[in-house]
């Protein structure tokens, strides 16, 4: 292939795509809204934006592949540190497994709820189309009976003794609503007026809503959900938090060994640091009553002014970088053979 063997052509292609990547959002921001609307982009903006996110999302396998390759090799060949690599892989696949199981369970609940939701939706549709008798009504009746029976059997899946007090209340509320809907009369009547259909639709929506809340609350007691909670509350959050908490201890050692006041500027810096710390802690006002106000002033006036200057400077530099990046002004690596 000619293109594939010509580094300059490749670089041009890469530059072209870099430019094309930015042109959509740039145009969307600079073009007047009326123009964006008239060419139909506004209507499809959500889907187009999703398309851009998809491009990035496709990279998700890169990290997984690398990590499995690096640590899998260690485990298979029992190289130094293979037990740690095994722990990593167990953590990785355990997480994927537990999250998948939890997700599939949630999707099943979602499908069940949507089936019940359909009773109200179908009733609303018939109402909108002013259909109050005939085959569609008997279809609504048949479907409603089937779904309400199913819902009733699913909510009894756990014995009442295993429900929390909040769940018991939800169940009572839901059972009452289902009974009300069954007793509506619409489920057996042949001739139905519009008002009755509207009432039925409204009650059916309420049943679906309560059913959704109750089914979701039941999910919190499943083994999969407990494993999922354990993964986060017992391992991930604890480990992550502890890892970063080490910094709190190190900063104490650094306070003793490294924070030396040697010049006027370092004295200024240390004074500002001490005021900020004392002004925020509860002991600060015991030392000097005006400490919180002094801290507030320091943050609002000199700090904000200096920080704004830094931020504006960095922002302008970032803007220049963004333009250069978008227009591929600095992109020697695109034409480099080594990369």
């Amino acid at each position: 292939m000619v293109v594939a063997n010509a580094p300059d052509t490749r670089a041009k292609i890469i530059r072209l795509f870099t430019f094309l990547g930015g042109i959509y959002f740039f145009s969307y921001f600079v073009l007047p809204e009326s123009v964006v609307e008239s060419i139909g982009i506004k209507e499809r903006h959500e889907q187009i934006s999703n398309g851009f996110i998809v491009v990035g999302a496709m990279a998700l396998g890169l990290g997984l592949f690398n990590i499995i390759r690096a640590h899998g090799t260690k485990v298979v060949f029992q190289r130094s540190g293979w037990r740690n690599s095994l722990a990593l892989l167990v953590g990785l696949f355990g997480t994927i497994g537990i999250m998948s199981a939890q997700w599939i369970g949630a999707l099943q609940v979602s499908r069940d709820v949507q089936d019940v939701q359909m009773i109200g939706e179908y009733a609303s549709k018939l109402m909108a189309e002013k259909i109050t008798q005939g085959a569609p009504i008997s279809m609504l009746q048949g479907y409603s009976k089937e779904q309400l029976d199913r819902a009733s059997s699913l909510i009894k899946v756990r014995p009442e003794s295993q429900l929390t007090s909040a769940q018991r209340l939800l169940e009572q509320d839901l059972s009452r609503k289902i009974s009300d809907l069954r007793a509506d009369g619409l489920l057996t009547r042949v001739d139905i007026d519009e008002q009755a259909l509207a009432g039925f639709a409204q009650r059916a929506h309420e049943v679906a809503s309560s059913y959704s809340v109750f089914r979701q609350s039941l999910s919190s007691g499943t083994t999969v959900q407990r494993l999922y909670d354990f993964l986060y509350d017992g391992l991930f959050n604890q480990l992550g938090s502890a890892m970063f908490a080490l910094l709190g201890v190190y900063i104490a050692a650094a306070a003793y060994r490294a924070f030396r006041v040697r010049t006027i500027e370092s004295a200024l810096m240390m004074s500002a640091a001490v005021i900020v710390m004392l002004g925020q802690i509860s002991f600060g006002k015991e030392i000097y009553e005006g400490m919180p106000s002094l801290r507030q002033w320091l943050l609002e006036v000199p700090n904000s002014a200096a920080f704004r200057a830094i931020r504006l400077g960095a922002g302008i530099a970032g803007l220049m970088l963004a333009i250069r990046m978008w227009l591929s002004i600095e992109s020697k690596s695109f034409s480099s053979e080594k990369k």
């Binding site: 740690n84 953590g91 997480t95 391992l235």
Partner: peptide, 18 residues
């Protein structure tokens, strides 16, 4: 080191799943 690796493993699994 064992728990450090376990943490990295869990973190690496979360991203793609979410």
């Amino acid at each position: 080191r064992f728990f450090e690796h376990l943490f990295i493993g869990i973190a690496a699994g979360l991203g793609p799943m979410l």
